[in-house]
Nucleic acid binder design. Structure first.
Ligand SMILES: [Zn+2]
Ligand SMILES: [Zn+2]
Ligand SMILES: [Zn+2]
Ligand SMILES: [Zn+2]
Lengths: 161, 161
DNA sequence: AAGTGAAATGTTATACTATATCAAGACGAA
DNA sequence: TTCGTCTTGATATAGTATAACATTTCACTT
């Protein structure tokens, strides 16, 4: 067991679950989860934290995979555009999606400045702040970035009593 | 007159207003709006769009200001941390604040993929999506990033009738 | 099984974004 | 004036991401 979303979870089940979910979604949508793409997703899920592209590249490089930037950026492009991973803009880093089976979603991230943990929240049920803002002006949203930086319950002084 | 926030405005008044506001806030808070910092803010307000650090650097360089990256990054650091400008994380670019006189705020940005305009919305009155997420888990927010990418009213097909 | 076109990968090079470091100058307070 | 601090100058380097083109793999047709 380890931390995720500020709570405990069964990480080995989490890994196999994420990979299986990706397999299923890909076969259902005619996408190709190739060896390299699968391996990058696996690394992200295993590490279970936001990783820079070059962090991932270093892991791949220790395994005989091609170790040039385009290798990892292409894999990330595939994973992000198909919802298996997300980019954390504030960190220029990437993280495996916490619920890839839920299809297209507008994730919300909480980033701890102290321990570096990144928790993916559920999209808000109500109309989001951005949607509200957009509607008032006639703007049509395609993608959203919602990230907060601060201290997680474990790192906040006096927190986690 | 030109576009801002998807509406018309008096740009020359807008420029002088922003500079004056910055002057006032600085003198009120003992901050030093030095020549270089002031010029960078001026450039951002004049251009009235999101600019990369090196775009700004190019302008400065044509004026005999020091033309090394730290010059502009230091000025931006000052402007952003004091609320006179914002960084658009999705674009790795910077924009002058639309209402610097309002002090600390959690801005919301709408970014048009077609024309590149960036509109700064007001922070939501209600508890924000991120605050809601955070409260549920005991996370303490220090800063937020809320950005949407899509099409502005002018660029959306059939929009702006 | 062979042919075809599209998608994916290999590889090299380069562009873009940002910070570290240390020396020198400007500024205000004592 | 002297001190300490903030700011600037200048050089180098770190970190993030994409362009471009050759080659291979794959699904699909013939
Ligand atoms: Zn997700
Ligand atoms: Zn933490
Ligand atoms: Zn603002
Ligand atoms: Zn537009």
């Amino acid at each position: 067991m380890s931390e995720i979303g500020f709570g405990k979870h069964d990480h080995s089940a989490c890994i196999s679950g994420a990979l299986e979910a990706a397999e299923q979604v890909c076969s259902a949508q005619g996408l190709r989860l190739t060896k390299g793409r699968r391996r990058v997703l696996e690394i992200l899920v295993q590490e279970h934290r936001a990783m820079g592209a070059y962090d991932i590249l270093a892991v791949l490089s220790d395994e005989g995979f091609g170790a040039q930037p385009p290798v990892v950026y292409r894999a990330l492009e595939f994973l992000v555009s198909n919802g298996f991973a997300h980019k954390i803009e504030k960190l220029n880093a990437y993280v495996a999606c916490s619920h890839p089976q839920e299809g297209d979603h507008a994730p919300v991230f909480l980033i701890c400045k102290s321990c570096g943990i990144v928790a993916e929240g559920d999209a808000p049920k109500r109309k989001s702040d951005l949607q509200q803002q957009a509607q008032e002006s006639g703007f049509v949203i395609e993608t959203t970035v919602m990230e907060a930086e601060g201290l997680c319950p474990t790192c906040v002084p006096g927190g986690e009593a």
